[in-house]
Computed example of a mutant assay.
Amino acid sequence: MIEIPLWAWGATIALIIGLFVFDLLVAVRRPHAVGLGEATFWSVFYIAAAVTFGLVLWWTAGSAAGTEYFAGWVVEKSLSVDNLFVFVIILARFQVPPEYQQKVLLFGIAAALAMRAVFIAAGAAAIHLFSFTFVLFGLALLWTAAQLVRHRNEEPDVRDNWLVRRSRSIMPVSDDFHGGRMLAREDGRRVVTPLLLVFVAIGSTDLLFALDSIPAVFGVTGEPFIVFAANAFALLGLRALFFLVEGLLERLVYLSVGLSVILAFIGVKLILLFVHEDVSESVPEIPTPLSLAVILGVLAVTAVASLLRVRAHPQERARAGTLRTRRREPERDEEPAASSR
């Protein structure tokens, strides 16, 4: 493990907060629908910031730390694309107007950063106290990979999860967004706007993704600083990336399969790491450079295979995938699934 001084932690956290606040100011100073040019510019900007941070880390902390960061960043970035799938579904199901979509996405990013910071701290403490945590993380990733393949053609029920139902039961829900507010008054009574329900749905989704992503990134590095930085830089820029790839997402028909392969690979890597360190050193461990090569290779094959499949079968559309079967029938006032995927 590399030694990260406190000033480096402080500087990195300050940089991430600064970038997020900057992104927030760009988005909320003038609510508007984001065009392709604007989305491309900011996507390139945040990818460049992530790569620059990795190069600085490589130069100051060594090639091993740099390789671990880039491997973790690629894993988290690929998982964040799957997260964008669900964001698209939520925005479509709740019919969020384009001018409010940036606010929703920024809330999702802020909630994801907060939740993952908590899970990173808990995961690092668990690994430090119990090396068997590697096995638990590995088994969790193998289970997630199997469920993701099994339910790859389904979509999560974002309008009827427990938190959304509870929110609906506390106060009456308006049909109007009331200028982007979360609470408003109608006929003299306090009501909840659909935007609050969207925030609840986004937050609960972020929680589920954090439970998957943190064990995955711990599979490529055990250094909490690198885990945190990789997660943060993967999440920054999701707002712009959403508008850039929104149309492309439905073409990635094999994304769930590709992600399941990556999660299964990292799960096996974690279990082998435990066996190598605590049972027998004769059992090989998978080096980080090989992990990075496998992850990039799987993503490349997934993207190419998806585009070839859609070209041969234009009617096919990708779905987000879910970890459990959707049991509820769509509500009558919902738009058909084809409208969001």
Results as ranks from 00 to 15, higher is better:
Ala230His: 15
Asp175Leu: 05
Asp176Glu: 04
Phe225Trp: 10
Ala201Ser: 14
Val198Ala: 03
Phe243Ile: 01
Glu246His: 14
Thr193Ala: 13
Ala216Tyr: 00
Gly222His: 04
Pro172Trp: 08
Phe242Trp: 05
Leu208Phe: 13
Leu244Glu: 02
Gly203Tyr: 01
Val217Leu: 11
Gly237Glu: 02
Met182His: 11
Val217Asn: 10
Gly237Ser: 04
Leu241Ser: 12
Arg190Ala: 11
Leu163Phe: 15
Phe199His: 09
Asp206Ser: 11
Val164Met: 01
Asp176Ser: 02
Leu211Ser: 06
Val191Gln: 11
Arg166Ser: 12
Thr193Ser: 14
Leu241Pro: 08
Ala232Gly: 03
Leu241Lys: 09
Leu235Gly: 04
Asn161Ser: 04
Gly180His: 10
Leu248Cys: 02
Leu183Phe: 13
Leu236Asn: 10
Leu236Phe: 01
Trp162Gly: 03
Thr193Gln: 13
Ala201Pro: 07
Val220Gly: 00
Leu249Tyr: 00
Ile226Ala: 02
Leu163Arg: 06
Ala230Tyr: 15
Thr221Phe: 00
Ala184Leu: 02
Leu183Ser: 05
Val227Thr: 06
Asn231Gln: 14
Arg239Trp: 02
Met182Trp: 10
Thr205Asn: 13
Ile214Arg: 12
Leu249Cys: 05
Leu197Ser: 07
Gly203Ser: 05
Glu223Gly: 06
Met182Gly: 11
Thr221His: 00
Asp212Leu: 13
Leu211Ala: 12
Phe233Tyr: 15
Ser174Ala: 11
Gly179Glu: 00
Arg190Met: 13
Ala240Ile: 03
Arg190Gly: 08
Ala184Phe: 00
Arg189Pro: 12
Val191Gly: 12
Arg181Gly: 08
Ala234Glu: 12
